[in-house]
């Protein structure tokens, strides 16, 4: 049991190491001279050369990688070329903002995905099932930024009930920094008006990110429940007179949740992916927008930093999902997932 988890943890660390090599190679192979880009076209060659040496760009790639990795383990990801600050400082500032969106999006996605999936399964073949099916196709087909634009048009422009940009309203003072998540920090400071303001700024970008995930969880939940509802054990439980509601929410739902939960980690990854455009759209100062600008400016240290952080976050999400699946499925828990 413990051995299984240790093995799994080892796998994750190995994947993370692989990711670091990949990021390093891509960032070094990409055309363009980072030192030149940083200093602009008019800087004298001698100054550019000095910066190259300072950034270790003159050393062999293998040496560069280990120097970079050695620093990275100590959380020293180098300086960002755009902000001229250590990358880790930028990440500390922007990551909580993105996490806030992703957490709300994740909760929203799981709740609606399950609800729609259960409804569609319960009312298989009825008009409700049809409506949910059409919605699911739309959710999968249209990318997150399309939904975000629609949401923004409807709820920030036509019916202006939600703000369309930033983390807090103009003129609001940010909360004293504890976690970096404004909603939590406002709450910790006892500022409920601030909490509400920060929260409404999260709603539209978070919801815009979830359509694809909701659609996918709803389809998978429905499919698994419909399939399982024909299984003998469900027939047997029905034949024993166990009330329908109990059947649906307990005996049918629990075995049917396993595939849905398993794909949730992919859905959360797609939420992060969608965030790159959506944060841009809502002018939201999060890690994804920071990463996007880093890519556009060929800010190598920042790109590597953002990619590694996202990699770590994704690993943590995966571990959590694995734990939930093990809670749900005794076969995974006791056989260590070998079966």
């Amino acid at each position: 049991m413990i051995l299984t988890w240790l093995k799994r943890l080892g796998t994750y660390l190995f994947v993370l190491l692989g990711l670091s090599v990949l990021i390093f190679i891509i960032s070094r192979v990409a055309p363009g001279d980072p030192a030149r880009i940083a200093l602009g076209p008019r800087a004298p060659e001698s100054v550019v050369q000095a910066l190259r040496e300072k950034m270790n760009l003159d050393k062999p790639y293998v040496v560069q990688y280990f120097l970079w990795l050695n620093d990275a383990i100590r959380l020293d990801l180098g300086d960002s070329l755009q902000s001229r600050r250590p990358v880790i400082e930028d990440i500390k500032e922007y990551l909580p903002a993105t996490l806030e969106i992703v957490i709300i999006a994740g909760i929203w996605m799981i709740a609606w995905g399950l609800l729609l999936g259960i409804l569609a399964a319960k009312f298989t073949g009825t008009w409700l099932d049809g409506v949910i099916r059409v919605f699911s196709y739309l959710g999968v087909v249209a990318p997150a930024f399309v939904w975000s634009i629609i949401l923004m048009l409807v709820f920030a422009y036509v019916i202006p009930v939600f703000p369309s940009s930033g983390r807090i309203s103009l003129g609001m003072a940010p909360p004293p920094r504890v976690t970096g998540m404004y909603t939590i920090d406002y709450l910790l400071a006892g500022n409920f008006a601030g909490f509400k303001d920060a929260f409404v700024h999260l709603i539209l970008p978070a919801i815009g990110l979830t359509f694809g995930g909701i659609a996918q969880s709803a389809r998978i939940t429905r499919g698994t429940m419909v399939e399982n509802s024909r299984k003998d054990y469900i027939l047997a439980e029905r034949a024993y007179g166990i009330p329908e509601r109990k059947m649906l929410f307990k005996y049918l739902l629990k075995p049917s949740l396993i595939p849905t939960v398993s794909v949730t980690s992919l859905d959360i990854a797609s939420i992060f992916g969608g965030a790159f455009l959506v944060e841009q759209l809502y002018n939201y100062p999060g890690l994804a927008r920071y990463g996007m600008q880093a890519v556009l400016n060929k800010d190598l240290n920042a790109i590597a930093g953002v990619a590694m952080v996202l990699g770590c976050v994704f690993m943590i999400v995966n571990i959590i999902i694995d734990i939930i699946v093990a809670r749900l499925d005794p076969r995974v828990r006791m056989l260590g997932g070998e079966n």
Binding site: A236, Y251, D329
Partner: peptide
Amino acid sequence: RSSGASMIFQDPTMSLNPVFTIGEQMEA
């Protein structure tokens, strides 16, 4: 269904819910 008749199915590998213990199922 709960007190008149009961049914035993053909395939015992399929007729017990895989994610609940025997105790949970019998007690239900």
